[in-house]
Design a protein around this nucleic acid. Structure first.
Length: 497
RNA sequence: GGCCCUAUCGUCUAGCGGUCUAGGACGCCAGGUUUUCAUCCUGGUAACCGGGGUUCGAGUCCCCGUAGGGUCACCA
């Protein structure tokens, strides 16, 4: 049997980061077993449809490296993969269910419906409509006369519905608690409950991953599978990612939750994936007492290691600091050329600064610059910021900083003058143009003014980069080039006059 | 409120009856390296929700309590 998993998002807005985690688990199980990962769009709620969200779901997959084998734009033999395009299929099964006596036409709407529903809610049992037992012929007459209707499933009474969940274990429900759920809405579209069952069956899905919020609706699907005479695939109800602030489902309130937004902020998709996979899953690796455990996993390693049995039931809190740490690790350890390309792409896609972009695209030494700053950055954004001084001369340098509190202000121009003369004497083309050689000379200058070496370095740093924090100074200067350094020192000097 | 699920350092987690004086990671703190900020080393801080059982023995099994989450739609 080939393993087939699917992600079934609703196009109702930005794709949530939790969706990526679910996708990761689906994808991993499919790929581990050389099966297929399918993307299906559940857009049966036309009111909540948001323009552009299908495109975004596709884009998120592409960026995060999760490639569907089937789905919208990917094709496949089980399409269409967008539910509104499968309307007739659901209708056929819904009516079939009525014929078989497992569902019924219901004509209850408005206040009447609401009042009855409230009664059942108060009683604490599942909703049952008075039309449940109306003879089918009578119901059909009403329909023929143009009455509006929905189709509800006929939930059996007094029955224990139990099944074993792949992550939650054995779960038992009382059928009296399960409502006669609407499966076909009055507009002719199915509700989720019917649509998933039909599609998962028709698309030959073998393992269903979804959030625990679906757990209590599972008996409805179990019933539907039974009514339709189909075998139900194993279900895996995944924990909910919790918000660190509210303790409830992760929401925008505490920060970014959109998968695309993380990328826009400068996160590396591989790092986000790594963080996500470990939220509720831990690798089955033998651990020696006291030995450091591995935290970094590539997608391929994850696929290899993944097994649903290692999924946790309890809900993890989304720890942004740890995500940041993962990102930093990925930036630090990434191949420099690859990283440089990503920097350019990021600026191209998410920064309006076209000027900077053209600098980056034409810089033959970009890779060296990236290399210089890569182990000090958390985000791609930081990387861009750290190297931007190469392309932009400092303006309005602030000399009154605590790092220079021991240096008399009137001494600064003197030092700069010395520095300038000193560097001017080097030939950029000779073997003298090496930062190791400057270092000694600059230390000598500091000694001459009886100041700390670090202070002299700081003055140089400020005049050239404009900031008290910079990448390793000498390597950076070497990359900047002699002419540029000297002219930056000169303009710093001018600001003193 | 009914029903379902969960409960180990602040957070992510390992643990699947004895090897637990409970391990790792993030964070935080201290020290070292260092021209800034980082990186990098070294060390430290910090947890089995409470109460009953079962057992020779419980973080690990059972029950109750407590706390948290989910769910009760013509939304998915």
């Amino acid at each position: 049997m080939t393993v087939r998993t699917r992600l079934a998002p609703s196009p109702t807005g930005s794709m949530h980061i939790g969706g990526v985690r679910t996708a990761l688990y689906c994808y991993a199980l499919a790929k581990k077993n050389e099966g297929q990962y399918i993307l299906r769009i559940e857009d049966t709620d036309t009111k909540r449809f948001v323009e552009g969200s299908i495109e975004e779901i596709l884009k998120v997959h592409e960026i995060y490296g999760i490639k569907p084998d089937e789905g919208p734009t990917y094709g496949g033999n089980y399409g269409p993969y967008i539910q509104t395009q499968r309307k007739e299929i659901y209708q056929k099964y819904a009516h079939e269910l009525v014929e078989k006596g497992h569902a019924y036409y219901c004509f209850l709407f408005g206040d009447e419906l609401e009042n009855l529903q409230n009664e059942f809610l108060k009683k604490g049992t599942g909703f049952r409509s008075p039309y449940r037992d109306m003879p089918i012929e009578e119901a059909k007459q009403k329909i023929d006369s143009g009455e509006k209707y929905v189709i509800r499933m006929k939930t059996p009474n007094n029955e224990k519905i139990e099944y074993t969940d792949g992550v939650q274990g054995k779960v038992v429900f009382d059928s009296n608690m399960v409502s006669d759920q609407i499966i076909l809405k009055s507009n002719g579209l199915p509700t989720y409950h019917l649509a998933v069952v039909v599609d998962d069956h028709l698309m030959e899905i073998t393992h269903v991953f979804r959030g625990v919020e679906w757990l209590t609706s599972t008996p409805k699907q179990i019933l539907l599978y039974r009514f339709l005479g189909w075998e139900m695939p194993p279900f895996y109800h995944l924990s909910t990612i919790l918000d660190p602030d509210t303790g409830k489902k992760l929401s925008k309130r505490s920060g970014t939750v959109s998968a695309m937004e993380f990328i826009r902020e400068g996160y590396i998709p591989e790092a986000v994936n790594n963080f996500l996979m470990l939220l509720g899953w831990s690798p089955p690796i033998e651990r020696a007492h006291g030995e450091k455990e591995r935290e970094i996993f590539t997608l391929d390693e994850f696929i290899e290691l993944f097994d649903p049995k290692d999924l946790n039931k309890s809900n993890p809190v989304f720890n942004r600091q740890k995500l940041l740490w993962f990102n930093k690790e990925y930036i630090k350890n990434m191949n420099t050329l690859d990283l440089a390309n990503r920097v350019v792409d990021w600026v191209k896609n998410y920064l309006p600064d076209r000027n900077l972009l053209s600098h980056l695209e034409t810089d033959p030494n970009l890779e060296d610059k990236v290399k210089l700053v890569k182990d000090r950055c958390y985000l791609i954004k930081d990387l861009v910021e750290s190297i931007s001084f190469f392309y932009h001369r400092p303006e309005n340098i602030v000399w009154e900083i605590k790092q220079l509190k021991n240096v008399p202000r009137n001494q600064i121009p003197q030092i700069l003058e010395e520095l300038k003369n000193f560097l001017t004497d080097f030939s950029e083309n000779s073997s003298d143009w090496l930062h190791e050689k400057w270092e000694k000379g600059i230390r000598n200058i500091a000694d001459k003014f009886t100041m700390k070496h670090g202070d002299a370095f700081m003055i140089l740093r400020l005049s050239v980069t404009g900031k008290p924090v910079s990448p390793p100074l000498f390597e950076a200067l070497q990359l900047l080039g002699k002419q540029e350094i000297i002219s930056r020192i000169e303009s710093a000097l001018k600001s003193f006059k």
